[in-house]
Design a protein around this nucleic acid. Structure first.
Length: 273
DNA sequence: CGGACAACCTGGCGGC
DNA sequence: TGCCGCCAGGTTGTCC
């Protein structure tokens, strides 16, 4: 599911039900779901801690407890939600982790593909050493983008997906941002003109802001914490629009592969030369 | 360093 | 209906 807009939507939806709640025990059924520390240490450490704040960094959900951070990565199919103890949730079919809360509620993590994980750390750097700048922060300027792209001569699409270069952009929003900027996904990252970098900077922020505004893209697995669909997919310019007309010029959108990822673009608006 | 590719896993979908 | 191959929003590690 989850790129920056989807994770941001999850974070916003979890604040109200989670902040102020205290953990009283955990349950899990898949060893790899708890990345660190060991399940026994995890259980002992989290017990009795209260959720104080919920934030996002890149695609990580950061649940700030009294002494630790409960970090959750949703990867492709992760879902994170709070329900009453006795509620059977539609996503429980793939439930792998649960934290019992006071007040008769539970924080649940479900993940059909089991790529996602939860972790308990003092600092995010323990599991993610280098993460690029947050593209929606005020200090992310075109100059910062130019500096981040310098030295990367591989395809701009692949570079945008690199979380060390820039935080939070994934396959959907990379395609959308490049369409907005009228840049071909195979252009060299360090070969963009100043004007193109300006357009890409705008395109990245526009694509991500639009995604957040629509509360994420429910292409297949993603749901908001309340279980309902996001609406960003109804406003894509190129992603999942193969064979449909470009919203700018009418040319049919094409799909190819860049960095082993499905890549959608307009062959007229986004050229290599 | 870059690029290709496999791994980690499962589910959904289209085609036959 | 059943089976098969392919695809999927992410990340990491390996090999050349």
């Amino acid at each position: 599911m989850p790129e920056l807009p989807e994770v941001e939507t999850v974070v916003r939806g979890l604040r109200k039900p989670l902040i102020g709640r205290t953990v009283h025990g955990i349950w899990y059924d898949w060893r790899n779901t708890i990345r660190t520390p060991s399940p026994d240490d995890f259980a002992a450490r989290i017990d009795g801690q209260t959720f104080r704040a919920i934030d996002r960094r890149a695609k990580f959900v950061l649940c700030r407890l009294d002494h630790d951070i409960l970090v959750v990565h949703l990867k492709m199919t992760g879902r994170l939600y709070v329900t009453d103890d006795d509620v059977v949730h539609e996503a429980d079919r793939w439930l792998h982790f649960r934290a019992q809360l006071d007040g008769g509620q539970q924080l649940r993590f479900s993940d059909a593909r089991k790529f996602g994980f939860v972790a308990l750390v003092r600092d995010l750097s323990e599991i993610a050493a280098r993460i690029g700048p947050e593209p929606l922060e005020d200090d992310f300027t075109p100059a910062v983008l130019r500096e981040r792209l310098a030295g990367h001569k591989k395809a701009i699409k692949a570079t945008l997906l690199d979380q060390d270069v820039l935080a939070g952009v994934g396959n959907i929003y990379a395609d959308e941002a490049l369409w907005h900027a009228k840049i071909h996904p195979l252009r060299a990252a360090n070969g963009l003109s100043d004007d193109e970098i300006m357009r890409l900077h705008t395109g990245i922020r526009q694509a991500l802001a639009s995604g957040i505004e629509r509360e994420g893209a429910s292409v297949s697995w993603y749901r908001k914490p309340d279980g309902t669909l996001g609406e960003a997919q109804d406003h894509f310019a190129v992603y999942d629009r193969t064979g449909k007309p470009c919203l700018r010029c009418g040319t049919l959108i094409e799909k190819t592969r860049v960095a082993q990822r499905g890549t959608h673009y307009c062959p007229t608006c986004q050229t290599l030369a």
